[in-house]
Design a protein around this nucleic acid. Structure first.
Length: 222
DNA sequence: ACCCAGGGTCATA
DNA sequence: TATGACCATGGG
C-alpha cells in the first residue's frame, strides 16, 4: 500500500466531482425497496441491466417479489420468470438460497442491527453471493459504508492510473474506503457514476486520452 | 455471426 | 494462488 504502488496520487474526490459534472446525480440503486435491490444485485451478475429489468417486471407481475414468496415458489417456476436475465437456473437457486438466509436471520430490521463486518461475512457465506454482490447489497440495500468494485471500476481506475491491473478486489475497496472514510453517500454516488460512465463509453464518442472522460472535452459535446 | 454485459462456483494444477 | 469451464439471455 505504499504510495509508489500507484503512479498518480489518489484523488477520488476530484474524480467524484468530475463524473458528477459529466453525468449528473444518479440516485442509485434503481429499485423501489431494499429487497428489490437485493434481488436485482443477484440478477445483474454478469448481465446487462436491461435484461434484469425484464426479470424484475415479471416477478412483480407474478406478485412474487417478496422473500417468503420467492423462497416457497417452485424452482422451475422462478427460473422461468427470471429467464430474460440469463443464467436463470443458477440465479433461481441463488435467489432462493438468499431468501432462505434472509428469512432465517429474521428479515431486514433484524439484519440491520448487525455490524457491517459481520453482515458482510454472513453474506459471503451464502452460496452465489460473492464480493461484488455482497457489497452492492451492503451499500444499496443496507446503506452501509462499503465501496463496490466492479468491472467498470477496474477499467476506469487502471486507465486513470489509480490502480494496477493486477490489484485485487479487497485492496481497491479498502483504498477507496480509506480515502473517503465511512461515508455511504460518497460510495453510493461514486460507484453509480462509474457505471453510468462505463455505459457511456460504449457509445462511440471521442474521449480525452489523458483522463478517459468524455464530457470534459469540448469536442465530445453533441 | 460475433461480442459482451453492473459475477460466482467448482475442478484442476 | 491461479487459471479454465460452465452457467444463458438479449442487444449492439
Amino acid at each position: 500500500m505504499s504510495p509508489r504502488d500507484h503512479p498518480r496520487p489518489l484523488d477520488l474526490s476530484a474524480l467524484l466531482e468530475r463524473l458528477g459534472r459529466e453525468h449528473g446525480p444518479q440516485h442509485w440503486w434503481p429499485g423501489e425497496t431494499a429487497f428489490e435491490v437485493m434481488v436485482g444485485a443477484i440478477l445483474t451478475q454478469n448481465t446487462a441491466w436491461t435484461n434484469v429489468e425484464k426479470a424484475i417486471a415479471r416477478l412483480k407481475a407474478e406478485r412474487a417479489l417478496a422473500p417468503r414468496t420467492l423462497y416457497e415458489t417452485a424452482h422451475a417456476s422462478l427460473a422461468e420468470w427470471i429467464r430474460p436475465s440469463g443464467y436463470y437456473r443458477v440465479k433461481a437457486e441463488r435467489i432462493q438460497q438468499y431468501c432462505g438466509w434472509y428469512l432465517e436471520r429474521g428479515g431486514y430490521a433484524s439484519l440491520q442491527r448487525e455490524a457491517t463486518g459481520e453482515l458482510r461475512r454472513e453474506l459471503l457465506s451464502i452460496k452465489g453471493i460473492g464480493r461484488e454482490t455482497a457489497d452492492a447489497i451492503l451499500l444499496y440495500a443496507f446503506q452501509r459504508p462499503v465501496f463496490v468494485v466492479d468491472a467498470y471500476t477496474h477499467r476506469l481506475f487502471v486507465r486513470l492510473g489509480i490502480t494496477h491491473g493486477d490489484e485485487g478486489y479487497e485492496s481497491v475497496r479498502e483504498r477507496v474506503e480509506t480515502h473517503f472514510g465511512p461515508h455511504t453517500a460518497s460510495f453510493n454516488e461514486l460507484h453509480a457514476l462509474i457505471v453510468a460512465h462505463g455505459k457511456a463509453l460504449c457509445r462511440p464518442r471521442p474521449l480525452c486520452a489523458q483522463c478517459g472522460l468524455a464530457g470534459s472535452c469540448p469536442s465530445a459535446a453533441r
